[in-house]
Structures are given as C-alpha cells and as structure tokens.
Design a protein around this nucleic acid. Structure first.
Lengths: 208, 208
DNA sequence: GTAAAAATTAAACAAATGATTAAATATGTT
DNA sequence: AACATATTTAATCATTTGTTTAATTTTTAC
C-alpha cells in the first residue's frame, strides 16, 4: 500500500511537499503558516512535523529543489563542450522560458528568499557550479579573443541573457498591468521571446 | 521644538518611517516584526501604533513611497515630448541605475510584495500612468511605422529596457556569487551598464 | 489472527506578535 | 505658575503560530 501510494505520487509526504512548494512559493517563508500548508495538503497539522520535523527543515527541502530547478536549465547547457556558443544561448533561453511559463513564480521566490539567506544556499551554489570556469565562459572569452564579439566583461553577457529571459516573469504583475496584458497575451509574448532573445543577444554581443 | 525636530528630520515619526523602510525593504511585510522596527528606530513599541495606527497602515505608506520611487525614473522621462526616443532611453537607464546603486533593494521589495497584493497598489498604478498611452510609446510606434526599428510589440522594448537595467539588482546576491564579484566590482559593472544598455537597446531595436 | 510498528488525530503548550491601556513625562498656552 | 495637550513608557492582552503530546487508527510482519 505504501509503495503503491508513492508510485502514484499520493503519499502523505508528497502531498505535504507539494502543498509546501505551492504556499512557500506564493507567500515566502515568513508569510507561510504551517496551518496553511496543512490545509492546502488536506492533512492534519501534526503530520507536517511528523514527516519533516519543522517548518524550517521542510522549507530547506523546497528551497533547495526550487533553486536546483532554477539553475538546471543553465548548468545542463553550460558545460556541454559540443555545442556552439550560439546554440547554447538558444537552448538555454528556450529551456528557461518553457520552464518559466509553467512555473513562473520560481525566480521571485528564490531571489527574494536568497536575499535573507546569504549563507547556506549560496555556499551550495558556488560549490556545485563555478559559472566563471564553465565551458560557456571559456567560449565567450575565446570569441572575444577572436574579435567575434565585443570586449566587455563576460559577466555582462550572462547578466543580459538572464535579465532578458527571467525578468519579465519576476515583474509580470507589473508588466501585465502597465502593458494592459492578460495572462494569455503575456504568455504569447514570452513564446515570441524564445526566438527573439537569442537574436538580441547576438546583436548585443557585437556592439562595440 | 516639534517644528525644529521635523526640520532636522529627527522627529519620532520620521525615525519610525525610516526604520520601517529599512526593515520592510530587507525582510518584507510578513518577515518584519513591529518590535524590529521599534528597535531599529530606538523607540518604544507603542509609539508605532500611536503614530501609524497599525503595522499594515505603516507598511502601506512605505510601500506606496517605494513604489513611487521605483516608478519615478520612468514617468518623469516618458511623457517629455521634447526629447528623442534615444535620449529618453539614455536618461531613463542612467537615472535608474543611479537610484539602484544607492537603493538596490527597492525593486525586489516592490516586486515581491506586489505578488501578494494584486489589488490596491496595482490600481493606483494603472490610474496614475498609462504606460501604453505615454508619449514614449507613441514615439516607439512612430519609429516602427517609419521602419527605423523592427516591427515587434513595443512592450518587448519596454521589457528589455527594464530587464537589462533592473534585473541585475534583483538578482545581485546570485550574480555576485556566480560571477565571483564583490560589491565594488558589482557596482563598477553597473556603472558601465549606464552607457552600455542604451547602445544595446539600440542594437536590439534594429534586429529584424 | 495477533502483536509490533507506523500513521493519523485532537488537544494542548509555550513563545511570538500586533495591539491596547493607563500611568508618567514633556511640551505648549495662557 | 497652572492647566491642557501631546508624547512616551512599562505592562498587559488576545491571537497567532510552531511544535509537542498522548491517544487512536491503520498498516505491516509473523
């Protein structure tokens, strides 16, 4: 029975995790009450502590998973030594936007919680993936050397790619309102950006 | 005495507001305890309610001010009918980055609190400034018509400008870590972006 | 089938937290 | 100086909130 439950993803533990992910992502750590999670999961409040010991430990699990999801689109692409710089940008932007259309709240959640914890997660982050030493960065530096792109800190290019891709989702409530867009229209723009951003990045890289 | 206090900006009311701005901006509404504010302000806890009735009313004041500050750099520039599109972009980016270097936490604060309140502030926002009907947008549409820039939704251009300018500050803890930058190096990159972003925007606008 | 183990529940606890009260002090007015 | 008003303080209240406990039910192992 327990096994069956887990297979069909309905075990109590999973229900709590899914509810926690939803509520934490929406309201942040401080704004989330353990009773919110219990209600969302449809379980008794005590089960949260039974399975996860404390709100904080549960949060750490959710946060780590969200952060890894936030990073995965990047990492998987960055160290691939077979693809060109151009292809890397294309697939990274495309992967990211696909993820963000489904889970638009992850970046704001991760970034706002990261602000309060300049400690643990950041450490895990810097150990797992040294962006500056990735094959992606080497490719950029090589392209600069070959004068194929302009001689600006590679960090700028990385910032630009992330900015153009992620920021619209972080600022979506504001942008939808300012631009007079409903969700559907917003998503349509995001779909367009999958093809546009790589072109824009290419153009940016050539600015002297 | 009261008058003098207010002039030199040391009245109790101002002390509370300044402390509240600092703590709210750092920790968000839910993460802020009224006792944190009182301690930061060096005042008795009861004075917070004496002057501002409640935590929520105090927050509303801070939030509105922060939001207006977040918007000001934009609005002041957008409806100026005398400056060119190019000049508008230059001054908007420059104003924004100057503001953000001094107050880097405003965007993440505003955006993350906006997520929970798709109600009041958003209404105030849309009333005050109809971005889509601004002179800035008319200039973009005209430029598209004149085939000076590519025919893409003007919202994209606005998103791009905001993304390239604001996102690095929203993601600064992550970017500093991934890029191996200290605060000084980060600020130096931001200074560079004041001149770079307008060039990049121009390049983007011409991408077919 | 039965006993042990695991899962679930209702109730309660202790600490935190936003707010209030009543007394004390400071300030302004005449 | 004397009174009224405004400000400040310490103490307290009522609720919320994270967690625990002890009893009950369900599942597992033999």
């Amino acid at each position: 029975m327990k096994i069956k439950k887990e297979i069909i993803d309905h075990s109590t533990e999973e229900k709590i995790k899914n509810a926690a992910r939803k509520v934490f992502t929406q309201k942040g750590y401080a704004g989330t009450k353990t009773r919110d999670i219990a209600e969302e999961a449809g379980i008794n409040l005590a089960l949260l502590n039974y399975y996860f010991r404390s709100k904080e430990k549960l949060f750490d699990i959710i946060m780590l998973e969200s952060f890894q999801e936030f990073m995965r689109s990047m990492i998987s692409v960055f160290n691939d030594e077979k693809t060109s710089l151009e292809k890397k940008i294309e697939s990274m932007v495309s992967n990211y936007i696909d993820l963000l259309i489904i889970q638009p709240d992850i970046p704001l959640f991760v970034l706002s919680e990261l602000r309060n914890n300049p400690n643990e997660l950041i450490k895990k982050m810097s150990l797992d993936n040294n962006l500056m030493k990735s094959f992606f960065m080497k490719q950029i530096q090589q392209a600069i050397k070959d004068e194929k792109i302009s001689d600006i800190s590679p960090v700028h290019f990385f910032m630009n790619m992330m900015s153009l891709t992620v920021f619209p989702f972080v600022a979506s409530p504001m942008l939808k309102n300012l631009g007079g867009l409903n969700q559907e229209e917003f998503d349509k723009l995001m779909q367009q950006r999958k093809k546009l951003i790589p072109k824009w990045i290419k153009a940016i890289m050539k600015v002297k």
